[in-house]
């Protein structure tokens, strides 16, 4: 059963992404694209002529996608949370290397910002994991999902996670990584056709990755988890529609200033 989910993960992520585009359109009183739009895009991309800069650049994107898939699979299989975070870091590094491997200004800017994003959210994610550990006594997702009470024991940690969700799904105010009008998609810029498709799909997987952290806060009651995910999903999109992009350096300051201190206060509260 789990394996089927793992295989279908990109499709699931695609549905979430399609739903999100509809949702955002409705928030702006538009009709918006059809729900299956991401899949139409993917089919179209398969049918385009593929132009690449050089082989390693293109292949790193493929590697990024598969490692990310592996990470999501690890989540579904209920592995160790810390491993998962570092696996995700690995995937991200592959992407960043890809961004740096071409002589393109926008790609470099995008990779720089991607690195800044890693610096910003990585510590918070690990602190969230430590928070789970303190309450459930284990880093294993299977064990974490058997406990409960994360929701009211780790409220500030949840807020901290909430602050970094927009970074990971590239939404305002923290969509500095792709920043369409500013750096034209950042790392994605030099990809086309099939190879862009891998990046397009890895975005779906990112959704699954970060929202599964939200889901964990539900603990043993999956309903609570689902409600939390839905709530966060709505909130993130609302904020995305209502705010402008912040400066890249400000993002790190905001995350370190607010998210980190919330997380620390919460963990100290649990400890003492």
């Amino acid at each position: 059963m789990t394996w089927i989910w793992i295989v279908l993960a990109p499709l699931l992520g695609g549905l979430i992404y399609g739903g999100e585009r509809v949702l955002r359109a409705r928030m702006q009183r538009r009709q918006g694209p059809p729900l299956l739009q991401p899949f139409y895009d993917m089919f179209k991309l398969l049918d385009k002529r593929t132009l690449i800069l050089h082989a390693p650049h293109a292949l790193l994107a493929v590697a990024h996608f598969f490692v990310l898939w592996f990470t999501v699979a690890a989540i579904f299989l209920g592995w160790n949370l810390i491993y998962i975070i570092f696996l995700h870091l690995f995937a991200q590094i592959l992407l960043i290397l890809a961004g740096y491997s071409v002589r393109s200004v926008y790609s470099h800017l995008g990779a720089n910002r991607e690195l800044l994003m890693v610096v910003a959210y990585e510590p918070v994610l690990i602190l969230v994991a430590v928070g789970f550990y303190l309450i459930s006594g284990s880093f294993e997702i299977t064990t974490i999902l058997q406990g409960d009470g994360y929701w009211h024991q780790l409220p500030l940690l949840f807020v901290a996670l909430l602050i970094i969700v927009p970074i990971k799904v590239k939404k305002s105010p923290f969509d500095i990584g792709e920043a369409h009008q500013e750096i034209v998609g950042g790392i994605e810029i030099e990809y086309s056709g099939v190879f862009y498709e891998f990046l397009y799909m890895s975005r779906f997987l990112e959704y699954l990755f970060i929202y599964s952290f939200v889901f964990l806060f539900g603990g043993e009651s999956y309903w609570l988890g689902a409600v939390l995910v839905a709530g966060v999903f709505l909130l993130v999109n609302l904020v995305d529609n209502a705010t402008a992009r912040v400066h890249a350096a400000d993002m790190v300051k905001i995350v370190y200033g607010f998210a980190m201190s919330f997380a620390i206060i919460n963990i100290l509260g649990v400890l003492l």
């Binding site: 002529r49 593929t50 132009l51 690449i52 800069l53 050089h54 293109a58 071409v102 002589r103 393109s104 200004v105 926008y106 790609s107 034209v184 810029i189 030099e190 086309s192």
Partner: peptide, 8 residues
């Protein structure tokens, strides 16, 4: 695959 110059 065909090669292309970076976008500037």
């Amino acid at each position: 695959y065909d090669r292309i110059q970076p976008y500037h």
